[in-house]
């Protein structure tokens, strides 16, 4: 059995499940946001009001967490397939994870704050 420290949950079963659940969350989020864009009258104030309503705040935070988990798992898998040089792979994985964490904190301060 191969242990991996750079992997998201360290367990194939949880990774698999998180990947599926996060995909569903992101798909629904996309439909909701795209639906608003298509059917609302537009304008920044409308948009701000919609996104800052309590349900959308919660949903957005959920979507951001899903995005972070989903990307981490996916990019980790791709990098272990295609980047054979250990140092390069590790550097790439750390860079991706740091970027994802930055996005996550940024998004949280927007929706939480």
């Amino acid at each position: 059995m191969a242990k991996s420290v750079t992997n998201f949950s360290g367990n194939g079963v949880s990774d698999w499940l998180i990947q599926r659940v996060s995909a569903v969350v992101l798909a629904v989020y996309l439909v909701v946001v795209a639906g608003w864009a298509l059917f609302s009258s537009g304008g920044f104030d409308n948009w701000h009001g919609f996104m800052m309503s309590m349900p959308m705040k919660v949903f957005s935070i959920l979507a951001v967490l899903s995005l972070v988990g989903h990307s981490w798992i996916g990019i980790w898998a791709i990098s272990t397939d295609y980047i054979k040089h250990t140092v390069v792979r590790l550097a790439f994985q750390v860079a991706v994870v740091l970027a994802l964490l930055v996005y996550m904190i940024w998004a949280l301060t927007i929706f939480w704050g």
Binding site: M1, A2, S4, G10, G12, V13, W16, A77
Partner: peptide, 10 residues
Amino acid sequence: GLEDPFSVFR
């Protein structure tokens, strides 16, 4: 023995 991220889930 199969639940790690590689053995089956790859």
